[in-house]
Design a protein around this nucleic acid. Structure first.
Lengths: 159, 159
DNA sequence: CTCATATTGTTCATAGGGAGAACTATAACA
DNA sequence: TGTTATAGTTCTCCCTATGAACAATATGAG
């Protein structure tokens, strides 16, 4: 009797659903506001900011690879790169093996800016985490990981 | 010896910090992609979509109140409302008590669209939650709530 | 070697997102 | 009856993003 729907997934209460939607919306809001704050603080438009951040992972990037990583079209990347070049944060050299491609890398000034940014990010995220007790923090991260997995799985369904 | 820094908050390991930053970035990404998917699916620009959603909470809205809720300047709201009016999703009447203000409300068509949207949202969020066991889900929501509180507290510091 | 094809990147047109200033119309108060 | 405040609209400007057309270089087939 009790498990007439036992073959279905565990049931989600309406309360949980509402609560969850609200939580996600608020977290999303926080992230967006932090982005905006960052952009103002470091005097960079959002796209240039995100682009700059990718040079931490690899020394040289090309327009094509940036387009791929940022999930935007190449013409968009042209403009972003323009902005960063004009600000003196990245530099461009020709690829010696293929003169169609430009290799992009941080200038010393860009490197310095990235260090400042990373310092700021560590500070902000660290502050968030430090507001929880050690055990709490560990539990939260574990649960967040589970949530991430679940959301990414559902994301795949929405194409 | 061990607690030389006992007066400081519990320490956050570098590993936790990296992990956390990555998790947040990915969750944020998921939310953004879902937004984009929604907009395409319901044939609405993002801003109009978000605006429409606010009519669930109150029957009548004004440009001013929308500007406040959406955290956007009133000229922007004018354009958003224009779009929704043109699509026949909302309607406008003069406030009988103050002829400067326009009262905005959903048309039947707009109501129908909102129902579809809410159905979709419940489905998506429900799917995410249903991928966890009941206990897991409860724990995750609790932890998410704690995270939200922490992030909102830190947000206040960034003004 | 040369011509067709593919790839990298730029420019331009178009459209949405958002801020701010100038302006209109209506209220409200002195 | 004038100020002064408030609600909206319009205009200009900038950022984000796409797609199409176009340049220059690479590459592979004949």
């Amino acid at each position: 009797m009790n498990n007439m729907r036992a073959n279905k997934k565990d049931e989600v209460s309406g309360y949980q659903l509402d609560k969850f939607q609200d939580l996600i919306a608020r977290l999303f809001q926080c992230c967006q506001e932090r982005m905006q704050y960052q952009c103002e603080r470091f005097q960079l438009p959002d796209a240039e900011f995100r682009c700059l951040g990718m040079f931490g992972e690899e020394r040289y990037l090309t327009a094509k690879s940036i387009a791929h990583r940022m999930n935007v079209v190449k013409s968009r990347v042209s403009k972003i790169i323009d902005g960063l070049l004009k600000k003196g944060l990245i530099q461009r050299i020709k690829d010696p093996e293929d003169s169609r491609v430009h290799l992009l890398s941080l200038t010393p000034q860009g490197q310095k800016k990235m260090n400042e940014i990373n310092e700021f990010l560590d500070e902000v995220y660290g502050e968030v985490l430090s507001r929880m007790a050690t055990d709490q923090r560990r539990a939260m991260l574990t649960n967040l990981d589970i949530l991430k997995a679940s959301m990414e799985a559902v994301k795949e369904m929405m194409v």
